[in-house]
Design a protein around this nucleic acid. Structure first.
Ligand SMILES: [Mn+2]
Ligand SMILES: [Mn+2]
Ligand SMILES: [Zn+2]
Ligand SMILES: [Zn+2]
Lengths: 136, 136
DNA sequence: ATACTTTTGCAACTGAGTTTCATTTATGAG
DNA sequence: CTCATAAATGAAACTCAGTTGCAAAAGTAT
């Protein structure tokens, strides 16, 4: 799906900054931080605009946060039909110790876990660290 | 085990700051951030000392990092015999949406996951979000 | 084309974490 | 116990991620 349609379907105005950010996400197959985006886009857009774009994409279900022990937050495109109302990003994330990239293992589901009595689960987040297929 | 022994066993000098930080960790049953520690200890020690204490405890295997989608890092005491050489913190972490606390579910192991061909796993980190037993 | 609303740029700000260096403290040898 | 040495601490300054307020610019519907 092209950038214009993605924006329209999630109720966002079609602006150059959003288009540009989407293009960068499509260009890489691993999760990107604000500074990754800024490296490619700072000639065109202000850093605050990039932060705000990340927020609206998160909010509308265009991207999801990839939790990672690194200092700064990373984000990746949602694979399925996520929306403001509901994210279905129930897959495992993999962080490579060699290249440092974190990627979505979209086809590896997070197993359900038995928690102790009294606890209620709403969502899970699983990060696996190791060496990725490209670096191995 | 008392603070002095914990420090000695991990090859750290017995100082007031380290003793104080250990006491705060023992006082709470959930993971603490630097600012949580600072709230209790700022009258006695400099904030930089608290940062450095966290680093040496991490390094020596006295505490481990609790990964969490929150802005700042959190840490918890290691339950088993962890050391510089080896951490055995293979348990699930639980973050409560109500109270905001993250705790170690020390008795809930992270299951092993089948990753795609070509990937090598070295460690896993599982965060479950929901409502904790106290808030439920 | 116009009016209205959202988005953007810019500057200033906050908060987490780090670095440097001089001073103080813990520890082990004598 | 005293002293020498290495390690730990405090203080100030700094870096980097992320946020806020506000005026200007751009998108959208009529
Ligand atoms: Mn993902
Ligand atoms: Mn833990
Ligand atoms: Zn890799
Ligand atoms: Zn709770």
């Amino acid at each position: 799906m092209d950038a214009e349609n993605i924006l329209a379907e999630h109720g966002l105005r079609n602006t150059e900054a959003r288009h540009g950010v989407l293009d960068v996400f499509n260009k890489y197959d691993y999760a990107l931080s604000h500074s990754d985006l800024e490296k490619e886009l700072q000639k065109y857009f202000d850093r605050v605009t990039i932060y705000r774009t990340i927020h609206s994409f998160l909010d509308k279900g265009i991207i999801h946060k990839v939790i990672d022990d690194s200092e700064s937050a990373k984000y990746a495109l949602c694979a399925d039909e996520c929306s403001s109302d509901r994210h279905h990003d129930n897959h495992v994330h993999f962080k490579c110790a060699k290249c440092g990239n974190s990627e979505c293992l979209n086809h590896v589901q997070i197993p359900s876990i038995n928690v102790p009595k009294g606890y209620l689960v709403s969502e899970s987040n699983l990060l696996i660290e190791g060496v990725c297929a490209s670096c191995n």
